[in-house]
Design a protein around this nucleic acid. Structure first.
Length: 704
RNA sequence: AGCGGGAUGGGAUAGCCAGGAGAUUCCGGCGGGCUCAUAACCCGCAGACCGGUGGUUCAAAUCCACCUCCCGCUACCA
């Protein structure tokens, strides 16, 4: 780490990657927003002046394409999503100081100023490239407006990548047999002049920059490949009318590439915050500029750190390149300050596979809220389960487990028992001083918190309060104040005094990760103020001598509830797996929608390993709480097996007994919803259309 | 193919950058305790040759080299 330890006496800004105004948020996105929010709160807590800003990314081809499909203009389309995000974030207690969007005036002006400075600094070059053109619609076709065939693997490809075949990035002009997504007509390639940012001008700067960049390891390691190799010029214009105009070419339908104006929104959003609260409260130029002025060039002077603030970006791992290569070059070229740290989150997956919005293989933000859980539970679970940069699996089971044990059993239980005991026996905080041992333990926790902030360690910050509650439970148990109160009243008062102090310290420390719960806890014994306003020192100041009866902070997550959520998730994952290869389930499957036949042949021997038999259903009973699952007794001639099958949605259970089915008899046994399943009934498709015989082959007959 | 990240008791996870006694925490298993508290809480036990091989070192989960297997990125996807 080459930077001065946080907190510094300069202003800081914490940003989170802009949500793209083109779809709802899922738990993977939320991980970054919650992490950023937690970190910004923690940074304030240690005394750093901090702005937490973000905004919606409104431009780009996908927005234009999707808006066109819905028959609305792109601005209306994107603003709808923008409004939704504006409401979604507070629902998870993610509270930005400013939440703007890239299409607003502030960002437009700033972006054009950035580009103008690059032009003045001679970092822009013009080059003619081949761009697809739709002669009928009489317009250029950027990115996803064009579909065709991948020149490398021959698979269908769209835009700038071979998304179904070899996954290669495709340069403009590479796609073969291009067609326009606007008119489904053939497109043609025409020569067109575009603007490029000459990244190679900043190569030396970037190589130094990456060495002093703080944050997660992946963020500073991954871009080295680019920075140390030959940097390609970045094409910063697109042929569209949706976006920010390239300066001086307003009449032309040439706009800036989204990745130009998107990160500049970090600056714009900070500026809007500054203008709202006044520069004496928060000065955006003091953080983003150098000595409150821009100093364009291709080099950095280390003394400039003294004259500029701390920029900390929290992003998804997938956009590391943009934040550690393009963005620092853009900032430097425009004469701005450079990021101090980039924290890149790992991915959230389900069953080891990454989430996919297009396949609905996800747990959505709305879905979590609809399940009725408090947002702070999610905040705690997602930020403390693992290090920020690691990939994690989302699991409702583990969510419930950790809520019940760590939040209900440890933190909630400790605070409740301590405050209740104090209230009943002393009407509030006993009149004595905190013991040295306990105040030392609290100070250790405060140190851990501060170290966590300095090391950008979100997990540590989120955990420190719970660990203190663990200590509290041990402490109260070891001293048994419920016995002392008769045997040694003075000592009992001491123990409870200590526990109340621990509770207050918990409220202070837990606030960044669970702000709403911390406020509730705070209000139980502290009538004034808000734990969000508290400083770390408040963890050691005495609580009021009187307070009322406390309430329980958390409640248990019920098994039934989790079972339902698991079942919903399981079904969705199953559908998503079938959709792999872009198969649509259900109605009107066109040939293109069906999974291609498997090329890998297996031997007859391998087939013979499958013991497939004719069976006859004897009984069929539904499984309670499961949407599809049925317990079947199946007669296989030699024996009757219990098999669990997911067939309730299509088949009427009353008609099933007597039906012939095809059973994979040597399937490994499994336990589903508490029932053992010994075999597998074969059925077609997501709707589980049962396979049967058409003659009278008796149960037990081998299928061959 | 190149690059990045990972592999730690039955499951999950920390420790690794700055090498050092018994490897952290949560769930689960077993055995105790307590009754202030939400079937909560506390204590104890069992369970890990820290992916493999070699190296550096008085000392390696930690540093180095090679290998295996997983995940991701490769310029629109958190």
């Amino acid at each position: 780490m080459s930077h001065e330890r946080l907190p510094t006496d300069r202003p800081a800004v914490v940003t989170v990657g802009l949500p793209y105004a083109n779809g709802d948020l899922h738990v993977g996105h939320l991980r970054g927003y919650v992490g950023g929010d937690l970190y910004a709160r923690a940074l304030r807590r240690v005394g750093q002046q901090t702005a937490f800003v973000c905004g919606s990314d409104m431009h780009g081809t996908p927005v234009a394409v999707n808006a066109a499909e819905q028959g609305v203009d792109p601005e209306t389309f994107a603003l709808e999503w923008h409004e939704q995000y504006s409401e979604r974030f507070p629902a998870f207690n993610v509270e930005f100081d400013n939440y703007g969007h890239t299409h607003d005036e502030t960002n437009t002006e700033l972006t054009q100023a950035f580009v103008s400075t690059w032009i003045d600094g001679d970092h822009i070059l013009e080059r003619e490239i081949e761009v697809a053109y739709d002669p009928e619609a009489d317009r250029w076709l950027p990115d996803r407006y064009v579909e065709g065939t991948c020149p490398y693997c021959g698979e269908p490809a769209r835009g700038d990548e071979c998304d179904e075949g070899c996954q290669r990035h495709l340069e403009p002009g590479e796609i073969e047999d291009p067609t326009s997504t606007l008119t489904s007509n053939e497109a043609e390639y025409r020569t067109r002049e575009h603007k490029f940012l000459r990244l190679s001008d900043f190569q030396a700067y970037l190589q130094e920059f990456i060495d002093r960049l703080d944050g997660t390891e992946n963020a500073s390691n991954q871009p080295r490949e680019w920075i140390e190799g030959e940097l390609q010029d970045l094409c910063i214009t697109r042929d569209m009318d949706w976006g920010i105009d390239y300066p001086g070419s307003a009449a032309d339908d040439l706009v800036l590439y989204v990745w130009v104006d998107a990160p500049i929104e970090y600056v714009a959003s900070t500026k809007q915050y500054s203008e709202r609260v006044g520069a004496e409260t928060y000065d955006w130029e003091a953080v983003w500029k150098v000595g409150n002025e821009t100093r364009p060039g291709t080099e950095w002077n280390k003394e400039w750190f003294e004259d500029s603030g701390e920029i900390i970006h929290v992003i998804g791992r997938d956009i590391i390149q943009h934040h550690t290569v393009f963005w620092p070059a853009m900032l430097r070229g425009a004469g701005y300050n450079e990021p101090r740290a980039v924290l890149a989150t790992g991915f959230v997956g389900i069953d080891g596979k990454s989430l996919s919005t297009s396949r609905n293989r996800a747990i959505w933000a709305k879905e979590y809220l609809d399940a009725g859980f408090h947002p702070d539970l999610f905040r705690y679970y997602i930020t403390t389960g693992s290090g920020l940069e690691r990939d994690v699996d989302f699991s409702w089971d583990r969510f419930a487990q950790r809520v019940n044990s760590e939040l209900v059993g440890s933190l909630g239980n400790f605070c409740y028992r301590a405050l209740l005991f104090a209230h009943r026996n002393y009407g509030g905080t006993p009149d004595t001083a905190v013991s040295e041992a306990v105040s030392e333990r609290i100070e250790t926790a405060l140190d851990t918190f501060e170290d966590g902030v300095a090391a950008y360690d979100i997990r540590t910050i989120g955990n420190v309060g719970i660990e203190l509650a663990d200590f509290g439970n041990e402490y109260i148990q070891r001293h048994e104040p419920w016995n002392l109160i008769d045997e040694d009243p003075e000592k009992a008062a001491q123990v409870i005094r200590d526990c109340v102090q621990l509770t207050k310290a918990c409220a202070v420390l837990v606030q960044p990760v669970m702000p709403a719960k911390a406020t509730r806890l705070w209000e139980q014994f502290e009538e004034t103020g808000d734990p969000g306003e508290a400083t770390l020192e408040d963890a050691l100041t005495p609580p009021p001598s009187q307070f009322g009866e406390p309430a329980e902070l958390f409640s248990q997550v019920e098994d039934d509830h989790i079972a339902d959520l698991n079942e919903t998730l399981r079904q969705r994952v199953a559908e998503a797996s079938e959709d792999d290869g872009s198969t649509e389930t259900g109605d009107e499957a066109t040939p293109a929608d069906i999974e291609p036949l498997e090329d890998d042949r297996i031997s007859f021997e391998q087939f013979r390993d499958l013991d497939v038999r004719v069976g006859e259903i004897v009984t069929a009973e539904p499984i309670e709480d499961a949407d599809e699952l049925v317990v079947l007794e199946v007669d296989l001639g030699v024996e009757t097996r219990q098999v669990v099958a997911g067939i309730k949605q299509r088949h009427d259970l009353g008609t099933l007994p007597g039906t012939r089915v095809i059973v994979l008899a040597n399937m490994e046994t499994a336990e589903l919803f508490g029932y053992e399943s010994d075999g597998m009934v074969l059925a077609a498709g997501a709707e589980a259309d049962l396979l049967t015989t058409h003659g009278d082959a008796p149960p037990g007959t081998q299928v061959r």
